[in-house]
Simulated assay, not measured.
Amino acid sequence: MSGGGDGASAPALRIRGAALHRGSRELWAGLDLDVAPGEFIAVLGPSGSGKTTLLRSILGLQPLSAGTIHVGGRVAHRGNPRIGYVPQQRPLPPDTSMRARDLVALGVRGTRFGLPLPRRGDRERVDQLLRDVGADHYGDRPVGLLSGGEQQRLRVGQALADRPALLLCDEPLSNLDLANQRGVTDIIDRQRRENDAAVMFVTHDINPILGRVDRILYIAGGRFVLGTPDEVLQTRVLTELYGTPVFVLRAGDRLVVVGVPDAEPHHDHGDDESSAGAHA
């Protein structure tokens, strides 16, 4: 199974010969991946397998041990406005002294040098982003008093501020109920469809996004497989990847993966999911 878009346009993301090591341990090596504009890639695997570290490398925050990463034809670098980043949902303190719109405004103004002074058009852009993520009705409320799902919509709004060509999502549905999982996923998927933004979506549960995914990058045991969901989410494929019997079962429209080994040691920085299965 190999990566690559349809060849109709330059890839939003190109990775060649990539390897990552932590000390003497190889997380993975030999990764070649082209992500086409508008393509939705799910990144799965156990804790510590290097999924979050891969996103950090694309963001220019952590060097590869080998290989190259290009975003929109340019070498990956810190602060790239072509990339939007959606982190895990982590509740903000109730006494956080900003409104919902102020949090989104950080994405609109935060990439400038010096003080993030407002400029003409900023308020209109913030208002539009609030509408885009379904947060306009609570834009003036204190952000610390909002629910986890409401706060996460604002983080997506931040990530969309520069109209990114590549959207990196690191467990963005964690700790959200099913309704908010669906809402956040719909926002991200709409950005992909309407603006041709490529998406790399790290998750421990493939089910909320299964119908949107074009390909899966599944990393485990220092190896990886890459292909369509039907190609990757098979008993035979995952058994070979893990080197131990793993079973993929279907329960209605959901997948359940049984027999996945315990999470690997030496967790990724920020990579704190507890398993890889249906929670793949």
Rank of each mutant, 00 (worst) to 15 (best):
A8G: 04
A8P: 00
S9T: 14
P11R: 07
P11D: 06
A19Q: 10
W28L: 14
G30C: 14
L33V: 13
V35L: 15
V35T: 07
V35P: 00
A36S: 14
A36L: 07
G38Y: 04
V43R: 08
V43M: 15
T52G: 03
T53D: 10
L55F: 01
I58Q: 08
L59W: 06
L59I: 09
L59P: 06
L64K: 00
S65Y: 08
S65V: 11
T68P: 03
T68S: 05
H70F: 07
A76V: 14
N80M: 04
R82F: 00
R90V: 15
P91W: 01
T96L: 11
R99C: 15
R101E: 02
V104Y: 00
V108Q: 04
V108F: 06
T111N: 01
R119P: 00
R125F: 11
R125N: 06
V126E: 06
D127C: 10
G149N: 07
L154F: 12
L154W: 10
L154G: 10
R155T: 12
G157E: 04
G157K: 06
Q158G: 02
R163S: 10
A165L: 03
L168V: 00
D170P: 06
P172K: 03
L173P: 01
S174I: 14
N175L: 14
D177A: 14
D177T: 13
A179R: 09
D189W: 06
Q191R: 11
Q191L: 08
A197L: 09
A197S: 15
V202P: 05
I206S: 06
R215E: 08
I216W: 05
L217P: 02
R223C: 03
R223A: 11
F224W: 10
G227K: 06
T228H: 03
T228V: 06
P229I: 00
V237I: 06
V237S: 02
L238Y: 03
L241A: 08
L241H: 08
T244I: 12
P245H: 12
P245K: 12
V248F: 02
L249I: 13
R250V: 11
R250I: 11
R254K: 09
V256E: 10
V258L: 15
G259D: 07
E264R: 11
P265G: 09
H269T: 14
E273H: 14
G277T: 08
